[in-house]
Design a protein around this nucleic acid. Structure first.
Length: 366
DNA sequence: AATATCGGAAAATAAACGTC
DNA sequence: ACGTTTATTTTCCGATATTC
């Protein structure tokens, strides 16, 4: 199966196939933007939410009526809408399709050599590692040093997992601020985001509008529309495309004057001074980097080849990278700085209390 | 087209916590 | 003491920018 993954096209691949796009069967919706409700009319909130009111039954509505779909608005460059995860979509009837086979866990070496680490590339246990050998930088292939873990950090009481609690349903502490579960003890797991896989044309972002009041049920519910139109079990929500840049950083709600859905749209120009998404080149001014010649740089030449042979077992679907925040301190800079700090610390020259220093190395690009 | 860069998810690690 | 939970740290995939 890994084989399969390997043989499939590496780039632009999405773990989920795009759905058939079908417009609302009921109400002759012509794709106009904004949607029914008009300017100043219906402006939905711009976040994921359950379909009210009957949709609040993660386990499915008691009377057998399937709950409504989840919808999610996609902030530019942040999220893709995915079809429901393998188990089942929030109250949806069990699918006949077998769940996608589990991916093999990515295996990592315990310690990457400094060259690989700085290049963010796969390393191996040997020293010199394969990559360094390949790039003829074996002499600099040494283990890095693992940072000592912070101590003395208090934590809240732990949440024991009950046996019945499946893996999927366990929250990670990261999802709970302060490690506290949301309110009730029997708090339900977060509802799966049941959105539609959608591939926006380059430069556009899909926004999914929930149906305006009186526009229910959603075709996704598999029920006839209010006008008697046939149910459409697979109909996705209607996406609206917002040109990149027609968009302030990330306000709510979305702006009604954003462009119409572009038939075969062209990449949108990104005007505007929106700081977060600025294109790198401008931001990335060299700013007199110490021009040290890093052996790892030499090594990078073959990286693509390397990753082609090595990687591929994990397809983290749909990851989009924006170079936007390169403006701040980049990862490599951070790494360099950290290294320098370490050095200084070793020399006792840094004068910064490590306890303080680590307090927020949280990059924050400042 | 080839190569370089690096964001960010996944994995690994280890400290804090809980139980016996 | 030992097992579990979870925060922190590291690895490295793969998307995107840059260079040739």
């Amino acid at each position: 199966m890994t084989e399969q993954a390997k043989s499939s096209p590496p780039t632009q691949e999405h773990p989920y196939p795009p759905p058939t796009i079908v417009p609302y069967p009921h109400q002759a919706y012509n794709g106009a933007f904004p949607p029914p409700g008009g300017p100043g009319g219906y402006l939905p909130p711009f976040f994921a939410y359950p379909h009210p009111p009957e949709g609040n039954h993660p386990e499915g509505a008691p009377n057998g009526v399937p709950p409504g779909p989840y919808m999610i608005g996609l902030p530019p460059g942040v999220v893709y809408a995915y079809p429901p995860p393998q188990t089942q979509a929030f109250g949806a009837p069990p699918t006949s399709q077998p769940p996608p086979a589990l991916r093999p866990k990515r295996k990592q070496v315990k310690m990457a050599c400094t060259n690989c680490a700085s290049a963010c590339k796969r390393c191996d246990e040997n020293r010199p590692c394969e990559r360094c050998l390949k790039y003829a930088i074996a002499d600099t292939c040494v283990d890095g040093q693992r940072k000592e873990r912070k101590r003395g950090i208090k934590r809240g009481p732990y949440r024991r997992k009950s046996k019945s609690e499946g893996e999927g349903s366990s929250y990670s502490g990261a999802e709970w601020p302060n490690g506290q579960p949301p309110t009730t003890a029997a708090a339900p797991p977060p509802p799966p985001v049941h959105a539609v896989a959608q591939y926006p044309p380059e430069g556009y972002y899909p926004i999914y509008y929930p149906p305006p009041p009186g526009f229910m049920p959603h075709p996704h519910d598999g029920q006839p529309g209010p006008d008697g139109s046939p149910p459409h079990p697979n109909a996705p929500m209607m996406p609206y495309y917002i040109p990149a840049g027609a968009y302030p950083p990330f306000p709510y709600p979305i702006y009604p004057h954003a462009g119409p859905p572009p038939p075969g749209a062209q990449p949108a120009p990104v005007p505007q001074q929106s700081p977060p998404q600025s294109t790198s080149a401008a931001v990335q001014q060299p700013e007199a980097q110490p021009q040290t010649i890093n052996p790892a740089d030499t090594a990078r030449k073959l990286d693509t080849a390397t990753s082609a042979t090595n990687g591929a077992e994990v397809a983290t679907g749909g990851k989009k990278r924006s170079r936007a925040n390169k403006s701040g301190e980049s990862k490599s800079k951070r790494a360099k700085r950290a290294e320098k700090e370490k050095e200084e610390e070793a020399n006792g020259t840094n004068g910064i209390d490590p306890a303080v220093a680590n307090g927020d190395d949280h990059d924050s690009s400042a």
